[in-house]
Design a binder for these strands. Structure first.
Length: 650
RNA sequence: GGCGGCGUAGCUCAGUCGGUUAGAGCAGCGGAAUCAUAAUCCGCGUGUCGGGGGUUCGAUUCCCUCCGCCGCUACCA
């Protein structure tokens, strides 16, 4: 009676090459899938690529390719990447495949027919990067917070999916289903989003603007919004609605995602499923971001990018897999680096595990003709045996709780115990006289048997090396249950005379030395300044250079008109004249200290090259300077003489 | 500004539904051993469990507050 496990990674968007974030989520899902299979569970692992949308269309055009050809190219690099990392996916779905498109089309028609999709005109600020309109609330500093670009104003007719009506039950479901979203803090985040109106979801784009997408079956002038299309992959890959795989796996679906796509998976997707009349997935597992070696977001300019595929070629796929599973805690942001990988690899795999295999092999070959003897267990052997056969239960428990790191650590504890056992029993001393040869055989047998169990338990993380390890001892593999019996390594087994070093010790390459772990405090202040001021690097001690200052364009401006912004306490909308430079609208939070009628005619100092920002629906094109005392009283800064508006302030 | 999370040994992190001497791995120091991949094994930590206050017989664990970092959000611009 086996259990069912359906695990998915996101379908990765083909707008860029696979990177560490992709690799991490995919490796975690794969290690988990392999544990399920090892334990006899009926397991299905899905990954793939998401290939529609405006961004793909433009990216393809930029390099002179048809969208499909462009997508083909990137999709191939993902296939290659997962091959490199030994990902054991059962399927690789591309959203441009006919089997996916036909499911999306029928889902659309069904949801439309039942009245859950309607047409409406929409005007708003559109982010090309997100491929959607942003709400006022989402815009930060006049820009899309995810892409750092200024959204453009667009008006278009779109179809909308009635999503808002699903708020109540979804919130209830999240509240009453522990583990539906893990870690729990992300469930709280979703609940707080659901506590307010979520609106209906714009789920189409005019084909005239976005030719690259799945057409709406009832209106070919529109194509499906890329997320509405992509999310359906999780069921289309199973042959929804009546495929055998769908019936078998769907209700046990567990999605693995990064926190950047929480909203689509925790809100869009469940409401879509409900509208489709399909059961919800079983769980959503949210991972954090992987940061560069310095703890900051990876970026080329910081030179802290860690490429998992290069590391794989340098140190082996298993080294990368083991490092990601063992050292990177799931669900929170964490720093990854080549240095950390090498340390983990050397400590656990080379020193503890690889070396143990080496020393056992050496004595077997030298003193026992390379044959595994029949053991005669004594009291001294019981502790090792007990730990070994008890490991599977611990591993099952940890893996079930998504604690891969703890699961692997359980196994490593056992490896350390075997090393202790080896030292305590001193087989190299036993080998010195004939009388102790039987005891020598038992000790070495137990080491080999321990390594057999270890190799099976580590196999999900180390698919290649586990097999190599067993090969080097003449052993065969087995399932998880086969680790719960001691003595399955057959006496008489021939130990191969030659075997390559399993885990040669790794040295950190020189190139890596360049990324000095800059003094922590400096890095932090720099990061903070970057965030609050978006300025370039400055001299130390919070001081800025004259060049920095000159980047700020300060000008005298005259207030032409002023009115309070409706339904706000603090905001005034000012119309300012800059003389020959024209007029500006500025929103300022000074209503507590100035009445609208007091201001027209006054001269103020304006930061003229500030990024526009939208406040309460009004685009503010700058900031006026005011001083503030401890009690919050504001005093506008104004020039001492009546200079003409537009004059530069330095 | 609001809501939420985090802040535990040099580093990466566990943990404490309040209670004997707060843990692991890595790094470091000393020693043993020499079968082995300069690997292994043993021993070694006076850590204000972010600061302060409170509740309690007792708090790192609960409450309040402050500081720092992160996320979401907002009438900062």
């Amino acid at each position: 009676m086996s259990r069912i496990a359906y695990l998915t990674t996101p379908l990765y968007y083909v707008n860029g090459q696979p990177h560490m974030g992709h690799a991490y989520t995919t490796v975690v899902a794969d290690v988990l899938a392999r544990y399920h299979r090892l334990d006899g569970d009926d397991t299905y692992l899905l990954t793939g690529t998401d290939e529609h949308g405006e961004k793909i269309f433009t990216a393809a055009a930029a390099v002179g390719l048809e969208p499909q050809a462009y997508a083909d190219g990137i999709a191939a690099t993902f296939v290659e990447a997962w091959k490199e990392l030994r990902i054991s996916n059962d399927d690789f779905l591309r959203t441009t495949e006919a089997r996916h498109i036909s499911v999306v089309t029928s889902v659309l028609q069904q949801v439309y027919d039942q009245g859950d999709i309607y047409f409406d005109e929409y005007e708003g600020l559109y982010c090309v990067g997100c491929e959607r309109f942003l709400t006022d609330r989402e815009i930060v500093n006049g820009k899309c917070p995810d892409h750092g670009t200024v959204p453009e104003k667009r008006k278009e007719g779109n179809y909308f999916f009635r999503m808002d009506k699903h708020r109540q039950w979804l919130a209830e479901h999240i509240r009453t289903t522990p583990g539906f979203i893990r870690p729990a803090r992300y469930a709280n985040e979703v609940l707080s989003i659901l506590s307010e109106s979520i609106g209906d979801l714009s789920m189409s784009r005019p084909r005239s603007r976005v030719p690259w997408g799945i057409g709406l079956p009832w209106d070919d002038d529109h194509v499906t919004y890329v997320w509405f299309d992509a999310l359906i992959n999780y069921v289309s890959a199973l042959g929804y609605p009546d495929g055998e795989l769908f019936g078998r796996y769907w209700t046990q679906a567990r999605h693995f995602i990064g926190k950047d796509i929480l909203k689509t998976h925790a809100i869009f997707w469940p409401t879509m499923l409900r509208a489709m009349g399909a059961p919800l997935y079983a769980g959503l597992n949210v991972g954090g971001f992987l940061m560069g070696s310095d703890g900051q977001k990876m970026s080329k300019s910081l030179g802290n990018v860690v490429n998992p595929f290069e590391l794989s070629k340098r140190y082996s796929a298993d080294a990368v897999r083991y490092y990601l599973a063992k050292d990177v805690p799931y669900g929170q942001d964490s720093a990854v680096s080549e240095k950390a990988l090498v340390e983990r690899y050397n400590a656990d795999l080379a020193n503890d595990l690889g070396n143990l295999a080496s020393r056992a092999r050496a004595l077997l070959l030298r003193h026992l003709d390379g044959r595994l003897p029949e053991p005669v267990q004594t009291d001294a052997d019981q502790a090792v045996i007990a730990t070994g056969i008890g490991l599977a239960a611990h591993v099952r428990e940890q893996v079930g709780a998504l604690r891969l790191s703890a699961a692997l650590e359980e196994v490593m504890q056992f490896v350390r115990q075997l090393n202790r056992y080896f030292n305590d029993e001193q087989p190299w001393v036993l080998a010195k006289n004939e009388a102790s040869k039987p005891r020598l055989g038992t000790v070495l047998y137990n080491c080999v048997e321990g390594l057999r169990i270890t190799s099976i338990l580590l196999e999900p993380a180390l698919p290649d090396k586990a097999v190599q390890l067993r090969d080097s001892l003449g052993l065969k593999g087995g399932d998880l249950a086969s680790t719960e019996t001691w003595g399955l390594a057959p006496a008489g087994t021939v130990i191969p005379a030659e075997a390559a070093l399993l885990f040669p010790r790794a040295e950190l390459e020189e190139t890596q030395a360049g990324s000095q772990p800059a003094a922590q405090p400096v890095a932090k202040t720099e990061k903070k300044r970057e965030k609050t001021e978006k300025s370039g690097p400055a001299a130390g001690d919070g001081q800025i250079s004259i060049d920095d200052f000159n980047r700020v364009e300060l000008r005298v401006a005259q207030v032409v008109a002023c009115e309070a912004v409706p339904r706000t306490d603090k905001l005034l909308k000012l119309t300012l004249s800059l003389g020959d430079l024209g007029e500006r609208t500025v929103v300022s939070g000074i209503a507590g200290s100035y009445a609208p009628q007091d201001l027209p005619g006054r001269r103020v100092v304006l930061v003229a090259n500030l990024q526009p920002a939208k406040l309460r629906g009004i685009v503010s094109q700058g900031m006026i300077l005011a001083a503030e005392d401890d009690d919050g009283n504001l005093a506008l800064v104004h020039p001492d003489k009546e200079l003409a508006p537009g004059a530069r302030v330095r």
